[in-house]
Amino acid sequence: MSDPFHDVFCQSADGLKLHAKTIGPEASPALPVLCLPGLTRTADDFDDIGRALALDPVAPRRVVSIDYRGRGLSDHDPDPAKYTVPIEMGDVLAIAASLNISRAIVLGTSRGGLISMALAATQPQLLAGVIMNDIGPALEMDGLMKIKGYIADPPPRKTWEEAARGLKTLFGGVFPSLTDAEWMAWAHRAFREKTDGSGLERTYDLRLAQGFTNLDPANPLPAIWELFDKLAGIPLMLIHGGLSDLLSRQSVQDMQSLRPDIDLVEVPDQGHAPLLADKPTIDRIKSFCVRCDRTDISAS
């Protein structure tokens, strides 16, 4: 059976080649889903949920998973100072426009959730629903420092076994239930073989770490509740890793108090960020998307 995913490419506003993966029927009456990955992540993170949504026998829908600049198969930016949420939001809009997507459900993991809130503030007409995967307006310093630590000086990995072991060492405490096969699958999403055959390389521009240079406990990221408020009126789901060190239970409760209608999904044995591959989470996402379809039809 051939791979149901298709690679598409377009150009950013400043001339970089951008990549996305698509799956599912373009002409489906169901809303498309735009999948936005985390800081160092790629479109490959959404393969499981993408297949589940696109190949659903009742409500198949188009799914587009995006590589921002500097990730996956998209060009690296010559200027690493441009690895920012506003510019990456522009990359998302460029890909959506190239695929004639003017209305969609946005599924944003971590960094992708921040971009989702920025879209709510600037392009609300695009958003028929938002799914935020382990991200919110207020983030924990411990989790941020952990991210800074593993992107600032990543150790080299020569073999796939070494890469899988390294990921398990780093994240095993917050993903205690993953099998060896699942760690290996994670490695294949996070690394690729170097073209010269000398080992593996990360699937992101290592200069992304420059954006964390000034981050420390004395210089925390400000909370962005004003952006969260821009999601008012947009159907909203929050997926929270029960072992997350980035999104606290207090922040989740604060989000619920502001949005009592939020569809909260707790993934008990996963940290930051849930992998969106287990059946209970996939089923909840599918149900939320169907609800967005109905809400969008009734509002139009």
Rank of each mutant, 00 (worst) to 15 (best):
P220M: 06
R249K: 03
F212T: 05
A121G: 11
C10S: 03
G166C: 05
R249E: 15
A104M: 10
K194W: 06
D263A: 12
P80M: 14
I131H: 03
E201H: 06
I131A: 09
V130A: 13
S244H: 01
I135W: 11
F5I: 14
A273F: 14
G70E: 13
S177N: 10
I147F: 06
G90A: 02
R111P: 03
T213S: 15
D180R: 02
A94L: 07
L246A: 00
G173Y: 09
Q250L: 12
P176F: 08
G108N: 06
P29L: 07
R71Y: 09
L119M: 11
A223N: 04
P280I: 10
P4L: 14
S28C: 12
P29K: 11
S116A: 14
R111F: 07
E162G: 13
D153H: 11
L231G: 07
A152G: 15
R157T: 13
Q123I: 00
D296H: 13
K146E: 06
M184K: 01
L231W: 09
H272R: 03
M1K: 15
P32Y: 09
A187G: 01
D44G: 00
L247Q: 02
Q210H: 14
G90W: 02
D77T: 01
G136A: 10
Q11S: 04
D142P: 00
P268C: 11
V290Q: 08
W225D: 05
P78T: 07
T281M: 10
G241S: 02
A43M: 14
I115N: 04
T159E: 09
H240W: 14
D56P: 07
P235L: 09
S74V: 08
V290H: 06
L18D: 04
W186D: 13
P220R: 02
A13G: 07
N100P: 01
A273T: 14
E26V: 15
A138L: 12
L39S: 04
L246M: 05
I131G: 01
A277Y: 09
I87L: 03
T213K: 08
T84C: 07
Q125Y: 11
E266C: 14
I95N: 02
P260W: 15
R71E: 13
V106T: 04
D56F: 05
T22A: 08
L39Q: 07
M255C: 06
S177G: 06
A104Y: 11
A185T: 03
L178K: 07
D278S: 15
L36P: 02
L34C: 09
V130C: 14
Q125S: 15
A59E: 14
A187T: 02
I95S: 09
F9Q: 07
P78N: 02
P260G: 08
T109F: 08
